[in-house]
Simulated assay, not measured.
Amino acid sequence: MPQLPAPAYPADVLARLGADAKEVIARYPGSRSALLPLLHLVQSEEGYVSRTGMAFCADQLGLTTAEVTAVATFYSMYRRRPSGDYQVGVCTNTLCAVMGGDAIFDRLKDHLGVGNDETTDDGKITLEHIECNAACDFAPVVMVNWEFFDNQTPESATKLVDDLIAGRTVEPTRGAPLCSYKETARILAGFPDQRPGAVEATGGAGAASLVGLKLARGEGVTAARVVGPRGESPQDSVTHDPSPTEHLSSHDAPQQTSASDPANPAGPTAEEGE
């Protein structure tokens, strides 16, 4: 049975999106290159990339709907069905998982009553597990509409989603202020970020990322956070000031095993012990 044509946007919406699309397409020497930002543009209208949105993109760029669908279904940042005002992503890639990301994700599933890629009944929260977001020195990381919430625990993540549902102000750990998923999509389409303080917002490498650089320069290193077993609070550590001739490595650590996995000790290899 042939699929029915996608419904069109209302005339006023079509005119507004058409003007925006024209601005986006003009940025590129080839119109086809504008497909990714145009998908963000239609996502900013409905909160997801609908059949209507894909038909709009195809019409604007002279593509088939199959060509647009192939791109929209490839990238995970494009939602294919209605989602919440806040996209809450819990990193469950290797380091974040070891540091407690799995525990956070399980807690939020139970607390919100949803599974992966599902939305709460009130339409506020869509929960999903996400891949690495290059913030391993802040693990475990939770992202809300692509803004960072670092060094999370099951308790802090639970409070975070409760605040979002209640409409309380939530401040990301770093970067720009939080906004709705639709507003985020419009920014990703390439339109000016109107959030107060967004231009001044900055991010940067965390202290853990800079340890190697400091050691290479012969500088003293302060480890402000030591990983404890999952579920326990991090412990403060002691400042270590290596001498110029001292070369620290993972084998200089006082522990013989990862604190997060005591059942699998990992001491020096046989060659290193000889």
Rank of each mutant, 00 (worst) to 15 (best):
F74P: 00
V13D: 10
T245A: 12
A72W: 08
A201H: 08
D110C: 04
I125P: 00
E23A: 09
S209N: 14
V238G: 00
S243C: 08
D236Q: 10
C179I: 01
Q3C: 11
L210I: 07
L178C: 10
T158Y: 04
T69V: 02
P5E: 00
I165E: 14
T94K: 01
P192Q: 09
L160H: 07
H247Y: 10
H251V: 11
M143C: 06
V24F: 04
I104H: 00
T94M: 12
P154Y: 15
V13H: 05
W146A: 15
A72L: 11
H240L: 14
A216D: 05
P10K: 06
R79S: 15
P37E: 01
G273L: 15
L95P: 02
V42G: 06
V211W: 09
A185I: 08
T92K: 05
P254I: 11
P177S: 07
C132K: 06
A139K: 05
H251M: 09
G53W: 02
R217T: 08
Q194N: 10
F191T: 03
D241Q: 03
A223F: 15
D117L: 13
V90D: 12
H240S: 09
R32D: 07
G231Q: 04
Y86C: 09
T52W: 10
P254C: 08
G197P: 04
R16Y: 06
G115Q: 03
A34L: 03
V24A: 03
G175M: 08
R51D: 14
V238C: 07
D110Y: 07
M143F: 15
A216K: 14
H247P: 00
P192Y: 06
S237F: 09
G100P: 04
A176F: 05
M54D: 09
G228L: 11
V238Q: 14
V68S: 00
A176T: 11
D106M: 04
N93P: 01
C96A: 06
A103V: 13
Q256Y: 13
G30F: 07
H111P: 00
P37D: 01
V13F: 04
R27M: 08
F138G: 12
D137T: 14
P2W: 00
L210Y: 03
T257V: 11
A34F: 01
D85Y: 01
S233D: 09
A266L: 13
A135I: 01
A208K: 10
M99I: 03
D137G: 14
V141P: 13
N264H: 12
M1Q: 02
A19N: 08
I104C: 09
V71D: 06
G101N: 12
S249C: 13
G220V: 05
V161T: 06
T126V: 08
A157N: 03
E45K: 12
A266Y: 01
T64Y: 02
Y86R: 13
A135E: 13
G231Y: 04
N145K: 07
